[in-house]
Design a protein around this nucleic acid. Structure first.
Length: 362
DNA sequence: AACAGTCTCAACCGCCTCGAG
DNA sequence: TCTCGAGGCGGTTGAGACTGT
């Protein structure tokens, strides 16, 4: 026995909503509130299915909905959550205030998914694509088909954190040096489409770098914390903690912002001649993990949360780990929960094995 | 200018979940 | 415990916009 359609009726309108219909719906909900969607069309004078009204309201008309381009932080959250949760758009949407699940789903399907594939990463499993014969993290994030001269260019410290030209659709005749830096300097001597592709893809590379950095760094953090201190071999984390130590205005910094700014693949952090995992930064002394935890706690207390960091951490950790945290407001514990997840799932996104990581930096 | 191919995203479809009775 | 139905969810579609030739 099949379920009957929610809306059976002659003359029900379908397709794009008109301004007039929008006004009627907004006016009705303004006066009567949400809910009772089945009755709303009739009461509001709309020839629409109640379900259609609900979707129109929740995905488009709701006043608090944020529209427009996704920020890099939002993209990071989407990728991280998708890696752990899959196509749970409503769950992901809960961590991105004012974004709808439909919008996130569309953005994933039309932008992020495509870009991950371009970088040789399976958007479903978040692992390197089989055809890439197990590329390493760095290889996955490095331009595979860019001219060597361009690769060299992107290693230049003159373009901090700009790590990759587009892996597809990249026009080798387009002079990279003519393209804008991240500070928004005017682009010159390059076609509009080229600029757009470049901007989009280079931003993706930075994003992927950041996500990879989080995965590897968090794993390092927890590994080291279990041992009590950090050794020189955890050079990646040394850079990470150093970055945190150097944060001058921690009062307004969020943990996400701090993490987002750490980019182990950035040449500004690791000049080419220093890229060697056993001697990066030349730090031999151990690091006290409590420093990081304390800072995280302070930031958590002070930060003006734009995104649901605590919710993000607790939600993920609780659902994927049997040793879930009890105190959802405790950022550190939640952070550890998320870290534990990463540790428990070594195949989280990439091969984060420290040996292979070292190889990337030699 | 015209056409074809591609992209974007609002909207729809059908199944699922869960609370009320 | 079972049934029903409203609301929620994820996958898919297709019209319009955009881009390339």
């Amino acid at each position: 026995m099949s379920r009957k359609p929610c809306c059976i009726g002659e003359g029900l309108k379908k397709g794009a909503w008109t301004t007039d219909e929008d006004k009627k719906l907004i006016s009705y909900i303004h006066d009567h509130g949400e809910g009772g969607w089945r009755d709303i069309p009739q009461k509001a004078g709309l020839k629409r299915c109640g379900k259609s009204c609900r979707l129109r309201w929740t995905n488009y008309l709701k006043p608090e909905i944020k529209r427009g381009e996704f920020s890099s932080e939002e993209e990071q959250i989407i990728i991280m959550l998708h890696a752990s949760r899959g196509n749970k758009w409503s769950v992901i949407a809960r961590h991105l205030p004012r974004r709808t699940d439909n919008e996130i789903k569309n953005y994933w399907n039309t932008h992020l998914k495509k870009r991950l594939i371009e970088h040789g990463i399976d958007p479903t499993t978040h692992k390197p694509l089989a055809s890439n014969s197990n590329p390493t993290v760095a290889e996955s994030l490095t331009p595979l088909n860019a001219p060597s001269s361009d690769k060299q260019y992107f290693r230049s410290s003159s373009m901090p954190s700009l790590s990759s030209p587009p892996s597809s659709g990249f026009n080798p005749t387009c002079e990279v040096s003519d393209i804008s830096n991240n500070d928004g300097t005017q682009v010159q001597g390059c076609s509009l489409s080229c600029k757009k592709r470049f901007k989009k893809s280079s931003s993706t590379s930075r994003l992927l770098n950041k996500v990879a950095a989080k995965a590897t760094s968090i794993k390092e953090i927890l590994s080291a914390s279990m041992e009590g201190s950090f050794s020189a071999s955890t050079s990646l984390f040394n850079g990470f903690t150093e970055q945190i130590r150097n944060e001058k205005d921690s009062s307004n910094a969020t943990l996400t912002n701090t993490l987002a700014e750490f980019d182990p693949f950035s040449q500004s952090l690791y000049p080419e001649h220093e890229i060697n995992a056993t001697s990066v930064l030349g730090m031999d002394q151990g690091y006290d993990f409590s420093h990081f935890l304390e800072k995280s706690q302070n930031e958590d207390k002070n930060m003006n949360v734009e995104y649901s960091h605590d919710l993000l951490m607790s939600d993920v950790s609780q659902e994927v780990s049997s040793t879930s945290v009890d105190d959802q407001d405790n950022m550190v514990e939640n952070f550890e929960g998320w870290s534990k997840y990463l540790l428990d799932h070594n195949d989280f996104m990439y091969d984060t094995d420290s040996d292979s990581l070292e190889k990337h930096f030699i």
